[in-house]
Amino acid sequence: EPLWIRPDAPSRCTWQLGRPASESPHHHTAPAKSPKILPDILKKIGDTPMVRINKIGKKFGLKCELLAKCEFFNAGGSVKDRISLRMIEDAERDGTLKPGDTIIEPTSGNTGIGLALAAAVRGYRCIIVMPEKMSSEKVDVLRALGAEIVRTPTNARFDSPESHVGVAWRLKNEIPNSHILDQYRNASNPLAHYDTTADEILQQCDGKLDMLVASVGTGGTITGIARKLKEKCPGCRIIGVDPEGSILAEPEELNQTEQTTYEVEGIGYDFIPTVLDRTVVDKWFKSNDEEAFTFARMLIAQEGLLCGGSAGSTVAVAVKAAQELQEGQRCVVILPDSVRNYMTKFLSDRWMLQKGFLKEEDLTEKKPWWWHLRVQELGLSAPLTVLPTITCGHTIEILREKGFDQAPVVDEAGVILGMVTLGNMLSSLLAGKVQPSDQVGKVIYKQFKQIRLTDTLGRLSHILEMDHFALVVHEQIQYHSTGKSSQRQMVFGVVTAIDLLNFVAAQERDQK
């Protein structure tokens, strides 16, 4: 057995438009009618409502009807409940999964919650491996369901041993009777949507819809739904939504950006999952974080739909894509998950301010006199920076000697690579993860907040409520011999709460 199987392995699926269902090699399930009293909570997966979006479509000038398939009504709160249950049931049916076995899954959280929910009911041990950027709410729900959680670096490539995929496979090879159901490759993922989600949409719309818009992560949702719609409703256009920084969209030119990270969760990847059939997507749109969270908040405030950030991405694209539809036509959007997962993220004004998705003037509360002053007023001194090749031991000596707790790590040209902190280095040394002679590049981390000289002290204040420091950066445009230009970030300084307090105190003292 291989040590790991690539999540982007070539698909062996034989589905073709027009091929009889009787030739399918898979076990198919028909939607079942729910009894009045459910035998367990797993029976509350599927049969989610279709809700008309009344205000947002009109606000953006849509002539067509805009409908939302509300997947956050599933038992675990997301569309991923469907595939989690289906993968477990299919693994039980073919004898792969037996009582007492362990389920391991690399996930952005929602599939993990679905699997942990099913594992709690069915009696399996469950280990979820997820990147650090995923919300604390997801972690809390997983723990409450009895799952064990392993976190991995957000910026690790999918084929790196440190990625959530790599760590999951390492655990599988170490733990007896453990299984990775593997949402990236498992046919049960798109089949769950082909058999149930798509049929529900067709039934709820009486077979009449002209466009379907869905955000894409593993691709199982859009693949399964689109294949069924292509068979039953061939005139329906399928629109895929991919965040900026991901590479799922086609044509490839759409993916060209210097951005590699994004805040919206559960969609987009740096590889093409095996289950994603991009041939059934008629057109791709890219979405960005700001519009995703703005539209998610709009869905909550104006439509009462308590959905997550990827739902915002989907609707932001839908109001663009559906401009081509006329009166009497219908566009369906998939709202994948609930706001429950993001209470401390985009639902929080403070978080939105820190990330730059909300401006101070958007909030009406009274601010102190210094709130709208610029960061450049602080008069920061030149920063202490270190090269990635310097040793951890030497870096600790320098920081202690100069009285700093942290320093930016830059390359020879001064471009920011990340940050090192005294606390992080000492804990890594004590844990045996690094040696004093190791290069400081081994303990770089990139989960820090950046701020510009033109940003306000109010925004800085919000950042420092949650973080010990902020890195002050400025952009530099560099022209190359080819005539092309590129933008790079340079370090201007490091600012802490002490710097802000000293500035405010000094100004008030001078005024007296």
Rank of each mutant, 00 (worst) to 15 (best):
K442A: 11
V420A: 10
V339Y: 07
T482P: 12
I444T: 09
D289A: 04
K442F: 12
Y342D: 06
V491M: 14
Q326F: 08
K366F: 07
Q435T: 15
V281I: 04
S246Y: 04
D467S: 11
E263R: 02
L378V: 02
A470K: 02
T395Y: 11
P388F: 06
R509L: 14
T344P: 02
G328D: 12
M419N: 10
L353T: 12
S461L: 11
P408G: 10
D405A: 13
S437E: 12
I238C: 06
I272T: 08
L325I: 07
L299Y: 02
H474C: 15
E397S: 05
V409S: 05
R340H: 02
R374T: 11
S486R: 13
T391H: 13
L254H: 09
E327K: 11
D270R: 02
T294S: 11
R330W: 04
T482Q: 02
Q329G: 11
S348C: 04
E263P: 02
P436N: 05
T395G: 02
R297Y: 02
L248D: 04
V494F: 11
K433L: 12
L464T: 07
G441L: 12
T344W: 02
G379V: 13
H394L: 06
G423Y: 02
V504W: 15
V504K: 14
Y445E: 02
G268I: 05
K512A: 15
R459G: 10
Q259A: 04
R452W: 14
K345S: 07
L422F: 10
N341F: 02
E327A: 05
M490E: 15
Q259V: 15
L358W: 02
G414F: 12
A470G: 07
V386R: 02
S428G: 14
T456V: 12
R374G: 09
L464I: 12
V443L: 05
T344F: 02
W370G: 02
G441E: 09
L373F: 10
Q450A: 06
T395V: 11
W371L: 08
P436D: 13
Q487T: 14
G268E: 02
H372V: 13
K449R: 11
M419Q: 10
L325G: 02
I498S: 15
P408C: 06
Y479P: 02
K355H: 14
D438G: 13
S437Y: 10
F469W: 09
V315R: 07
I390H: 15
L453N: 08
T364S: 12
V434S: 02
S485N: 02
R374F: 11
S427L: 11
G268L: 04
L306F: 06
K345F: 02
F448S: 11
I398K: 15
L373H: 15
T389V: 13
G432D: 14
E265P: 04
L453R: 13
Y262M: 02
T496D: 02
E263L: 08
I390S: 10
M419V: 12
G403A: 08
N255G: 04
E327C: 13
G403R: 14
R350V: 08
K359E: 12
V494H: 02
T421L: 12
L399N: 06
E361N: 15
K446R: 13
F404N: 02
H394G: 02
Q439W: 14
E412A: 13
S481K: 15
V473P: 08
A407S: 14
Q447C: 14
M343G: 02
S481H: 14
A301M: 14
L426F: 11
E244R: 07
A497L: 02
T279Q: 14
D337K: 02
H394Y: 12
H372M: 07
F293D: 04
D510I: 02
L384S: 14
C307I: 07
W284A: 02
Q435L: 12
T261A: 02
D362S: 04
H480C: 11
A413L: 13
D282K: 14
T456G: 12
I272F: 02
E252V: 10
K366W: 09
L373P: 12
Q406L: 07
E360A: 12
T482G: 02
W370F: 12
E360Y: 13
N341G: 06
D270G: 06
D499L: 05
V472K: 02
G423L: 09
W371T: 15
M425L: 12
Q507W: 11
A407V: 13
G483M: 11
E258A: 07
E265Y: 02
R297F: 02
H372D: 14
F285D: 09
V375E: 05
V420G: 13
